[in-house]
Design a protein around this nucleic acid. Structure first.
Lengths: 396, 396
DNA sequence: CATCTTTGTCCTGAGTGTGGAGAAAGTTGG
DNA sequence: CCAACTTTCTCCACACTCAGGACAAAGATG
């Protein structure tokens, strides 16, 4: 199969490609209703796109009371690769041009093993997806990493939890290996993009997407666009202080949110409680190495264990306290909570909501939904595909 | 004098008007260097603007080694009115089309007296400025109010410190009275616009502007544009909790930033200290009613009074704590501190900086200037003029 | 005074985009 | 089965935008 070579020649073509991506196949007439162009001009641009091969006309749609329309759709062979590198695992997926996930793989891996080892794994997973017949090659790839990124260059900068990646040319290296364009971003931003494209945040212009996994981060969307900040570290809320003289944090400070609540902190607290005999439910779930995860806490809570419930409530209060501040400051139209701890579900959500609704101003909370992400592990890879498609579907 | 009737007919004309506003008089050739247009096209658009009377060609500039250029400038008779309504005083200013302040009045007044009384005062001040010969009429007016605003309609919504203004049609009423277009915004946003236009924030795309006066608010600029949030309450940081079981706040919660530090809280603390005999410097400054202001505290601190210095340091710590969180979240390129307490100067700034640099991530603070606003009371009115000129200098 | 530089104007030609006429293809009702 | 109406799509004429070059105007320089 020939890979995507052309790019839209102007903004009209770019807009058409995005309409087809987000709205699926469509007739010329329907496209005309959604874009501010005359039918004649539209036809010209569609014809040019057909010539490039980026879109195809296949078959006729059912009549709507008159002449049947030609179905215009994005080239069915286009394939994007979405990669989401977490602290403890890797997600890789293939999508079509409409960003529907055709295949998805997950592999546990510690990001601290460094870029070379991780890349090897990513490429192996991509090869596996290709071998399964889902793609003959990739037209573009998006990749998320758990740390700040200098976005234009696609290079991680001073990432606390993956020091070995500092300055590693992720974009260039992956582009070389895959032979296609690549865009790199923070994993939290990609989750936000994913939920915006296919999840709970559709049609919301300004929202926050709080991802609670091994660490805590927050994707910020302003006017439909991800906001990355001056140095690419916007949304790094894990080290906001929630307790004046709280626990020591890996960053060197005390009382950071991440030190009090996150996947890692929760697991540690649960293990302590189990060992101290404060919770038989949790103790029963200890594995051979004496370890627990957020999943265990969720299970214990579901079984009614009061200690587990307390841990979740306490954590939700801490996160809610920070989110309350962010809501007052940012006045979003929606707050999405996702990441590994989504499994804690409505117990977590309830205490977050309580804090936010109590502490923030009524005007800001009046009509503010606080919800769990609906895409789970697909959010990151969908966002990654969205990132590269946004790039490729812009004028060259 | 005839008032501004025409509006730019297209984006080119709008951009030209803004170039002339921000860069002052200019020749066609120099404008051509700053705008992406051919000389011929540019000449056409300039001619059209000359026809409308929005710009004029007056005289020839000195030669730069060849034919002398015609000076193109915005119509010299254009006048904008900038109004900044604070909690305890009103600022009104007249500017020319380049937003230079030609005249400026200040009048103490309690905003709680309600919109009717305040409007009367504002109109009297505007009339006074007009009578002094600075303007024969106004081509537009911008007005800032100390509370959230539904921006498109120009109506305050649920403003805590000025309940009588809720839903009052500020834009429509003022437009009627003045007979010119009016735009309304939060006073903090206007301060940010002012500092961006003529102050410390020139050429910074993303920054925060913290205004500490009677209350505390924060202007948010993203990509050069003010961000107002979903309901217009973005930046309302006065009620972020800084102390878990802190002081009772007027909003009904405990431990709000505003309850611990703001012009009002500082004055109260200083009065308490003076009465309790903990500070002779402050006691000496008590007025007949036993009242003090931030200015008194600044003076006492300048005289070396340890209690006053402590109050400032403590307050700076509280504000710094909140700003540190915002810096982590928003990753701005600059933080500006302004408002009534600017008089506390470098004592305040020092403790804010200490908190922020200690608590926020190095990547976010690495190259982050935290500075005092440089426009003082002119910031608000300049921002107001900028607001309305941005509106009028956009395609109709 | 000839030459060079800078500024501003005019003209042509390529491209962009609109709106209408009308053909193509289909549905509906008598 | 046919006439009338709809919807979709194509084609064409015309207006407008815009770039780039030729050229005129006005001054500096030697």
């Amino acid at each position: 199969m020939r890979r995507m070579t052309a790019r839209p020649a102007n903004t009209h073509q770019a807009r058409l490609l995005r309409l087809l991506r987000d709205g699926g196949p469509n007739s010329r007439a329907q496209l005309g209703d959604q874009i501010d162009l005359s039918r004649s001009k539209l036809a010209v641009e569609v014809d040019r796109l057909l010539e490039t091969g980026l879109v195809v006309a296949d078959g006729l749609a059912a009549s709507r009371g008159g002449r049947r329309s030609h179905n215009i759709r994005l080239a069915p062979g286009l394939r994007f690769l979405g990669v989401d590198i977490g602290a403890t695992s890797i997600d890789v997926a293939v999508t079509n041009a409409e960003l529907e996930v055709l295949g998805h793989l997950n592999h546990p891996m510690d990001v601290r093993e460094g870029p070379v080892a991780v890349f090897e794994q990513v490429l192996a997973m991509a090869a596996k997806l290709r071998a399964s017949g889902l793609a003959e090659g990739f037209d573009g790839a998006g990749i998320g990493v758990p740390g700040p990124v200098r976005f234009p260059e696609g290079v991680p900068v001073a990432p606390p939890i993956m020091p070995g990646w500092d300055g590693f040319p992720v974009r260039e290296a992956l582009s070389q290996e895959l032979g296609c364009p690549v865009m790199v971003d923070n994993d939290v931003n990609l989750m936000a993009l994913g939920e915006q494209h296919a999840g709970v945040a559709r049609s919301v212009g300004d929202f926050l997407c709080v991802k609670i996994g091994t660490g805590i981060g927050c994707g910020i969307v302003v006017g439909g666009e991800v906001y990355r900040g001056t140095t690419g570290s916007a949304g790094d809320i894990g080290h906001i202080q929630v307790e004046p003289d709280g626990r020591a944090c890996a960053c060197g400070n005390r009382g950071c949110l991440e030190a009090h609540f996150s996947g890692a902190a929760l697991a540690r607290d649960a293990e302590d409680a189990a060992r101290a005999g404060r919770s038989p439910e949790l103790a029963a779930r200890l594995d051979g190495a004496g370890k627990l995860t957020a999943v265990d806490v969720a299970a214990a809570a579901a079984a009614g264990d009061p200690t587990a419930l307390d841990l979740i409530r306490e954590g939700g209060n801490k996160v809610g306290q920070v989110i309350a501040g962010l809501v007052s400051f940012f006045n979003p139209g929606l707050v999405v909570i996702g990441g590994g701890v989504t499994g804690l579900g409505h117990n977590l959500l309830a205490s977050v909501r309580t804090q936010v609704y109590r502490q923030s101003l009524p005007l800001a909370t009046g009509n503010l939904p606080i919800v769990l992400g609906e895409l789970g592990p697909v959010a990151g890879v969908t966002g990654a595909a969205r990132l590269i498609s946004d790039h490729l579907f812009s004028p060259a």
